[in-house]
Structures are given as C-alpha cells and as structure tokens.
Design a protein around this nucleic acid. Sequence first.
DNA 1: GTTGGCACTCTACGGTCGAAAGTGCTAACG
DNA 2: CGTTAGCACTTTCGACCGTAGAGTGCCAAC
Lengths: 341, 341
Amino acid sequence: MKPNPFDSQLDPRLSRILTFVVESHVSRAEPVGSQYVRAAYHLSISPATIRNAMRELEELGLLLHPHTSAGRVPTEAGYRYYVDHLMRPETVPIGVRRILDDAIGRARTQSRASDLAPILARATRQLAVMAVRSREEAVDQVNLVALDGGHVVVAVGARDGMVATDTWRPERSPCAADLRRAESWIRARLPAAGPKTLDALALEARAGAPSEIAGFIEEALTRASRLLSTREEPAVRVDGADNIASQPEFQAPGTLRPLVSLLANQESLVRTLDAFSGESVPRVAIGREIESPAIRACSIVGMGVAVGGLRGAIGVMGPVRMPYRRVISLVSYVGARLAGA
Amino acid sequence: MKPNPFDSQLDPRLSRILTFVVESHVSRAEPVGSQYVRAAYHLSISPATIRNAMRELEELGLLLHPHTSAGRVPTEAGYRYYVDHLMRPETVPIGVRRILDDAIGRARTQSRASDLAPILARATRQLAVMAVRSREEAVDQVNLVALDGGHVVVAVGARDGMVATDTWRPERSPCAADLRRAESWIRARLPAAGPKTLDALALEARAGAPSEIAGFIEEALTRASRLLSTREEPAVRVDGADNIASQPEFQAPGTLRPLVSLLANQESLVRTLDAFSGESVPRVAIGREIESPAIRACSIVGMGVAVGGLRGAIGVMGPVRMPYRRVISLVSYVGARLAGA
DNA sequence: GTTGGCACTCTACGGTCGAAAGTGCTAACG
DNA sequence: CGTTAGCACTTTCGACCGTAGAGTGCCAAC
C-alpha cells in the first residue's frame, strides 16, 4: 500500500462539493458543472465559489477536466476518497431485502448458490458474478454402492461433511462381496487424501490389489479423483451483462469488446474475483486497482462467501462511475447472509 | 416452406459470378466491384460484362447494392443459393482433424461434451455453442443408500441407463431397515415416472407413507425430482464470442449489444439452438431464417448430437458473411463423430 | 454476348463556421 | 480571507460544403 495523502479529512466544504460532484456524475453520466451543482443541491453559494472549490479538488487529483470547457469528472482517486470517507452506508429497502432473503434461502437449501447472480444483477443493475468452488478438504471416506441395473455409485466424503458422487456401469458387475472388499481395500489405505493421493492410489490398485477387483478399484478411484478435481474448478455464473453494456461508457466503438472477451473467457473473470474471496466485508476495487488489465474502465465490489460445503466469492462489476452506495450495501447484505451461520 | 424460385440451376455464367462475389465478400468484408472480381480471379472478360451479370443477379434478388456507387453484396437469398447450389464441400485438413478427434475422444469418455465448444470455436474462428441435456426418459428405478457419516444417496435411473444421484444428510439418520422400507414403498408406486410424477409421489408420501419414514421419503423424492428437472436444463457452453465480435459487422456502435445480451442470457441461445437438435446433418440458418429476432444479422450452422446419455446440439454462429464451406465441413465432421456409434 | 467510353451518383474526408457550455481570471465586496 | 459578479477565452458539437474517389449504368460499336 502506498501512503494515502488523503487520510486526513478534507475540508468539510470541499468534502461537500466532492460528494455532490461524484453523486451527480454517477447519476447523470456527464461532466458536472458548477451551475448544475448549485441548482441540483439548492446551494446558496455562487457558481464561482463552487468553481474555486472544484479547482482545489482538481489540484488534489480528485477531480478532472475532460477539456477546458466541460464540467468536472471524478478521478479514480476521487471515487476512492468518496468510497472511503464520504459515502454513507445505505440500508437495503425492505422489499428488496425480502426478494434477496428468499433467493438466499433457496440457494442455501439447494446448494445452488450461483442462482444468486441473476438476483444480484437485477438488484444492482450491474453485472453480477458468483463463483463457488468446493473446499479443498481432505477426503474422509469413500463408499461404493451397487444400484439396481448394474450401476455403481462411488461417493467421496470430505472431512467437513461435503459429499460428491459419480455413477458408472462396470463391464462386469461386481457382486456385493466384491464391493465390500474393494471398499475396505480403499479404506485401509485412506489416510487423509486429496485428489492427487487418490490418483496415486488408483495406480497402486492396478498393481497391488487382488486381481479380480483391481480394475474395478482403479476405476472407482479415478472417478473419485476426477470428482474432486472437477469440483475444484469453480462453478461460475455471470448475469446482467446487458445492464452495463447499455451504460454510456460502453457506447463508444470498441469499448464493448473487452466486455465480450470477458464474458466469453470466464476463467479470467473468475481469477479476478478470486482475489476477493478472502474478504469478509465488501472490498471495492476501482479502475486500475483491478489487477486484470482487460477491465481497466470498471470497478468491482466483491467479497467472499460460503454456502454449504462450497466457498467462493460474489462480485458486482460495473463502470467506474458506479452507484457505490447501493452496490456496496447489496453486496454486503447478500454476503453477510451467505457467510453467516 | 415457400417455393424457391431458384431450384432450377442458374446460368453457369451467373453461377460463376455469384460464387466469386460471395467468396470475395466473405473474405474481404467489403462490397465487391466488377474490377475486383476480374482481377482476383484472372477473368478474361471485361468489367462491363461482369457488371451485366451482376445486374441480372441483382434483379433476381441475389445481390444487393448498398448505394449507387458501391460494389455488390450478396443478399441473404444469395447466400442461400450459394450454400444450396454453388458451394463445394470442403474436407477438413488432417491436422485439424487430429485435434478434433482427440477432443471428441476426451469428450466421449469423460461425458464432458461441452469442452468441444472451445475447440470448434478455434477451428471455425466463429462463435461455437454446445448444449446438451439428458434424455427425457421415464424413471426406472430409485435407490436409496446410506454412506458412512450419516449421508444418504438417492439415485434415479432412467430406462435408457442414465443414472443421476444426489446426496444429503437427513436430520435423523435412518437405519438400514428404514431405507429398505422406503425403497420398496417407492418402488411399489413407481410405474414409469417423469419428474412431475415424482413430485406427486412426494406429496402422496407425506400423507400416506408410514409416519416414521414419511418425511424421509418425501425428501428423497423431492430430490430425485429436482435431479431430473435440473438435468433437463441443459448444460451449455459458449466460446469464441470475441472471434465474431472482432468482425467488421460488429464494429458499428450498438451492433455488439445484441451479442452481449445473448451471452448474458444464454437461455435464448439454447432455445435457438434447440431447433437444430433434430438434424443429423448440418443445417444452415441464414439471417432472418433464424427464429430469434435478437440475432438477425447472424447465421447459424447447427446439428444434433448424442454423447453417452446426453443429447443436444452443436452450433456455430457468426455474421451472415460467414465462410460457410469451412464451417459446415467442421460442424459436419464433429457432428458425425458425436452421432456415430 | 461482349466491349470501351463516359456521364452520373453516392460516400468519405477535411475544413470552416456559429452556437453552446463552462471555465479562469480579475476586480470588488463584506 | 472567503465570496461574488462580470467577462473573455477555450473547446466541443453539429451543420454545411466542396472535392476526390469508387463504381455503376447506359449507349453505341464490335
């Protein structure tokens, strides 16, 4: 972290003006002039005074002039100061809260956390991302069960209680005794195993297990391993892309392209969001603060969540000119519910 | 189908010119003029002659004039005629074929057909979609199995051999006898049931099953039902969006928006692709032939596929000005491999 | 059916002009 | 010292216009 020259509070006069400029610009999407601020907030001071204040803010690097005769626009530092010092927390309106609670409840019980992305996208009118992956817990138990019809279920359980299953139909159906033997062969060799250990164990089985069930055990362990590793590649859900595509910052030709690439290439989006998964309260990354160079013109509000056996992050992305108050309050609300007991 | 006035072969002279115009325009992305055609194909006829032919083609509705002094552009009917009568099939080069074979093999064995979308996108340099859903087969069997640690697996098997499982941990762990009783209660009432029947059965269980296992059965059936219906919502994978976003037809402001919506709202894409799932050879939908009004400026080459217990469709989407030869050959190749035994 | 010649039409580009917006500066005021 | 009024200044934006370039349509001739 570089030292922030604005840690000390700004002059209250300048604070007020900065707040006005930021909030005006967020809602109007145009440079805001001194006249406009005066009229919009019914100020009793003259435009000239406001201009003086704006000039000071510009010298501090918090505002910016697109050109000589345009109003002011907040810089990224300006938004940063606004988010850190000026913005007051907003409470989520009761109606929205009900909708969210409902969706969160469903996500919890059905372990389909990704369904929250559309809800969050609608509520914030931005792009919402939800990425969850399973905890990388040690494997605790492996069960093998025969079903009617010759199918076999392999179920792996992690120490934290998460369970995943896969099904297949072996060429030669094993009898119940074989299943029990295979299970205990595995159990005897199962200390605390991650997916790599399971792979190693599969190899060991091919060589060392009783020959009539060796192939079967190998298959089961291979599937168990794949179960864990495919679980590790996060389930991601993105929604609301058209919300931000319709924003004025994406109207200029060529500006939408990075967004399309992002949607097409969700891995990089997930990687970006991963940086937020450690946060227990919303963190705001503004513009260039985002690592990924592809999305320089955007901001992200994100935090980590945990649902059932899954953990991951939620994030809301939009142009730097974003209604931070509302977005933060919503992310915070959803995040708290998903992190909480 | 409306009667096609062009079923009879076009004059060979006109056919040649139309072919040249289509192929030139596909690769150059600009209106093609008579001079250009002459030079590019080393024709020994004069530009004036070519112009005469073009005028005839324009009168037939196969070519179009953006304005008085621009070259010609194929109309959608022109592309249609080209695809139906002029285009010669292309063979997939051996190198590409190897890459595809490899990917197809992996998709088969791992039942992860969606991984083919990125491959197809790279090969065609267009947008590729792969959507698979499980067959809507009648439920054949429901198994309940206890695992170590108090978890229970519910496995539903469909008549065609597909199996899906879900796991949960009931509040009160049922004993082995309870499980068997629950299983046979269900089995006795299981004719050939779809997800709706399973839901109905869950309700019946709440009222009519032995009280000590009623709640358990209800839960199991609800999960089984959800298993089928979430399986029914197809797994979809889209890739290569940036391929077509970089095409000149998407450079004009506002033209990219529908594409973004499409990527954000993959349901409608899936619905559009569904229309192709019945085809056993590639079908080409050009421009307005596509039902969905959102993607009027695009064409789709798609066909149905089947992988393991899954069925669905692959599709390649791009601007109407698309290299149909190459795309069709690739879709055909992949599709044939996925449909074959 | 094909060709050469030529007038015609339309777009794209670059420059000029006036209106509108909003500032910066200076001088005056409490 | 903060605030204010007045005014010149800068810059963008849209409209307008004239020219260069591209490619056609048509006509008369082969």
